[in-house]
Design a protein around this nucleic acid. Structure first.
Lengths: 188, 188
DNA sequence: CTACTATTAGTACCTAGTCATAATATCTCG
DNA sequence: CGAGATATTATGACTAGGTACTAATAGTAG
């Protein structure tokens, strides 16, 4: 049952990683050593005490929830627009837009930029997205600036549909492309 | 500064809900009453002590089998998930999600819910959207609750693609449908 | 044997509480 | 106004799960 120090400490790390909710006393029983030894081990390994461990787990969860920020009204800044023709917007990818794990922008932000641009370019009180076909050409990273260009391809006055094509670029490289079938209820 | 009991207790509930990491002492200062009063209040309201609160937050996080990605990165609340099979999330459409003019939800929010659900259902460290084909079946209004159901249709291990189908409903009425081609980089 | 490491033991102290009891303060009703 | 109820505060004993420090003991290598 009893191993040498190194072995025990490695197991200690693993055990705590797997179950951070274990007390020193339980650990001491598990490894058949005294509580003091466990505490010395934790000290050497810089493993905080139970309560601090629990707290940090809780904090992580809490931060995560708090950070899920709502999407803004319009995503990206519109810098040029010709109603019913074309429009351009820029969107700077910041920390809150990316997956923490790999700093890649979440798809829905790129979609949101393109979609809001497609809505904006339509010269009407009320424009809604009916259908859309999109492709993410390459991953966009934190701190990159995405330039979306929308172009109205076809206006069908009969059924109130407008087709908009949006291409988004980072440094002239295509990162996103989408076709949007927009619906306009009132006449313009 | 000092309110009556009921008012204080209601504020206590809100304060703790917003920040479960607050101690009785801090609360007593905040409400200008003694620590004992706070403790009586907690007793009456059945609010557990700080450590227990922290612990339960931590446990919830730990129990979450949504290991594929932290909750933060999800729009809508995931209420059920079978990794690599199916998942369900709910999203309440609030004021900040709709066009002011007509109280209709902006498309990108529905897309975001569906897209993050598609990401979440994939049992992998890293899931990205490659392509997507979507349709908005009917407009969703403020205060409606959207239930998105994702289903993994096909996993192609060869090229790391996974096809996910998402249908979103309001009161059993289909409001959104989308096919997502997801890309997973690492092996599962 | 000595030096050194590893382990164990023991004490005082800490935080953020619980539980129980008692003393005030404040409000309300007749 | 005063009695009784309700609300608030104070006090003390006790708890878990520790930290920090000192000291003693066991085993082992040179």
């Amino acid at each position: 049952m009893r191993r040498n120090k190194k072995e025990r400490q490695q197991m200690l790390i693993d055990t705590i990683k797997e179950n951070p909710f274990i007390t020193d006393e339980d650990l001491s029983e598990k490894f058949s050593v005294s509580v003091q030894t466990i505490r010395l081990d934790r000290l050497e390994l810089s493993i905080p005490e139970l309560r601090e461990r629990i707290k940090s787990v809780a904090e992580k969860r809490f931060e995560d929830e708090v950070r899920s920020l709502p999407l803004e009204e319009v995503i990206g800044e519109i810098i040029d627009i010709q109603l019913d023709q074309s429009a351009i917007s820029i969107f700077d990818v910041k920390q809150e837009h990316v997956f923490k794990r790999n700093q890649i922008a979440r798809g829905h932000h790129l979609f949101a930029q393109a979609n809001s641009l497609a809505v904006a370019v339509i010269n009407d009180e009320l424009a809604l997205t009916a259908k859309s076909n999109i492709q993410f050409k390459r991953a966009v990273k934190e701190n990159e600036r995405v330039i979306a260009k929308a172009r109205v391809v076809k206006i069908d006055k009969e059924n109130g549909r407008t087709k908009v094509e949006v291409n988004s670029y980072v440094n002239n490289e295509l990162v996103f492309t989408g076709d949007f079938a927009m619906y306009r209820s009132k006449n313009s």
